[in-house]
Amino acid sequence: MSGGRAWVYGDDINTDVLYPGAYLKGPIEEAAKHCLEAIDPTFVPNVRKGDIVVGGENFGIGSSREGAAEVLLMHGVPVVLAKSFARIFYRNAFNVGLVALVCKDTNRIAKGDDLNIDAAAGTVENKSKGETYSCETVPPHLMEIVNDGGLVPHLKKRFGRTS
């Protein structure tokens, strides 16, 4: 279960907006300071642990840079909700321990809405509006990866078991 305030954006939020190329070279902590800056300079100074990022269609389109998912996690965002995700971003999210949930009702969510999310059950409770939305179920093997904290800890567990 995760809960927090919604940061709502539109369609096609791309990886250059999430993690500008100019910061690819340096430490991720520096890149994180510029997350979403091009479209919302208020995000980084105001985001709080537990907040939820909400997008429209095709969230995370663009580069394969995994930092695009990682920086959200570094800002304390545990879940991204979107109507659809770009496929590399979707995989990257689970691989680094960020939950990406496909929810077709994200247009009903407004900036600042108080959300309560149950990823396993696939539900989003919008406490501000008194509504509940359902999400597509996450494939079990991805839930397992994210519950282990990402692909590397997941593989560590698997190798530990088999060796």
């Binding site: 590399i88 995989r91 691989n95 593989l155």
Partner: peptide, 14 residues
């Protein structure tokens, strides 16, 4: 297909 860095770690390991 294009994949991210941790996915690649998984491929290289397995």
């Amino acid at each position: 297909i294009g994949i991210g860095a941790t996915d690649m770690t998984g491929v290289l390991a397995t």
